[in-house]
Design a protein around this nucleic acid. Sequence first.
DNA 1: TGTACATCAGTGAACGCGCGTTCACTGATGTAC
DNA 2: TGTACATCAGTGAACGCGCGTTCACTGATGTAC
Lengths: 185, 185
Amino acid sequence: MARRSREDTARTRQQVLDAAAALFRARGVHGVSITEVMAAAGLTHGGFYKHFSSKEELCAAAIEHASRGTAAELRKRMTAPGAAAFAKAYLSKLHRASPDKGCVVAALAGDAVHAAPEPRAAFGDAVRELAALIQDQLGPARPAVRRRALANLATAVGAMILSRAVADGALSDELLEAAAAQMSE
Amino acid sequence: MARRSREDTARTRQQVLDAAAALFRARGVHGVSITEVMAAAGLTHGGFYKHFSSKEELCAAAIEHASRGTAAELRKRMTAPGAAAFAKAYLSKLHRASPDKGCVVAALAGDAVHAAPEPRAAFGDAVRELAALIQDQLGPARPAVRRRALANLATAVGAMILSRAVADGALSDELLEAAAAQMSE
DNA sequence: TGTACATCAGTGAACGCGCGTTCACTGATGTAC
DNA sequence: TGTACATCAGTGAACGCGCGTTCACTGATGTAC
């Protein structure tokens, strides 16, 4: 193929990011090859390095990209204020079933621990963004609210990760419900 | 090398399991090769298949092995009854710093989501065992206690995973403290 | 506005590497008599 | 209890495969005049 216009190049980059953000969340970073990401974006693998210098750099960019999407989606789903509305929006069975479109923190926490500094830093930013979002949802920026927001973040993310990891559907449901109940108290 | 006695064979298997349980928890299942596991057990890689039929089978066995260790260690560290004692034992900085000796559920939740049925089932059993342990710690086997145990499990595991994944030490500490405070309420 | 040339996004073959797995071999252990 | 033989835990070389990455090439886009 031949050289593309600037608009095409920018559009391609976004398509690669969209594909990577979805595939990485669905199957984990190491579970998806660059060839698969490029194919999902409608391209062949060779052109990848015209957009990113390495898989790690893509990973970091994809986490950042997904984080913006996660936050926007969550804000849209939380119509009322308070912890119960967050719990309902976050701990749904729909969210559990669609990691590719869901919270990047829950989907990639396991990968982030062992990731290179760049994607790790991007993951840290995503955690901070989600914490801030929950804090806004719970109330004014006071220390007690901050603490409750972080605890609810841990509960929500932990429940989502475990409910996805466990094969037994009944236990999986129980985990979501117990976490939602505690957060809504 | 030559054939070994039954006692030697059994001892070797345990050493491989010990090594795998520690290495998998420290660096993730896909971050550790069979050669590394065998070397950590003092052997070469070729003999691996005399003990396990595949890496997946080792993974399942290592999760089961680690789960027993996790439960025993945790019971030992919880001297008093109640949620606060669990929070203190589980959400410590020592635990955060030593995933190789720590809770297998927190260490391998990210891997379990994408794992084969066999290790996934072993992970589910580990979750059930940890949930039962927390429930015992909280009180008699009533539905409300069960629910609280599952919520505390999600909070503790989520906080530990996130505190390890986040590079920023201050945020990492804050997560552990916020989760411990909420669980001790 | 038109022309000549440099740029570079995308292609597809190729590379090097590490991994899980297999295999022929060794020789002490376990077993049958 | 002793002997002959089969078993099999462990070794280390080798395999096949998929992955991340590189590279020569193409030809439309962007730029300089």
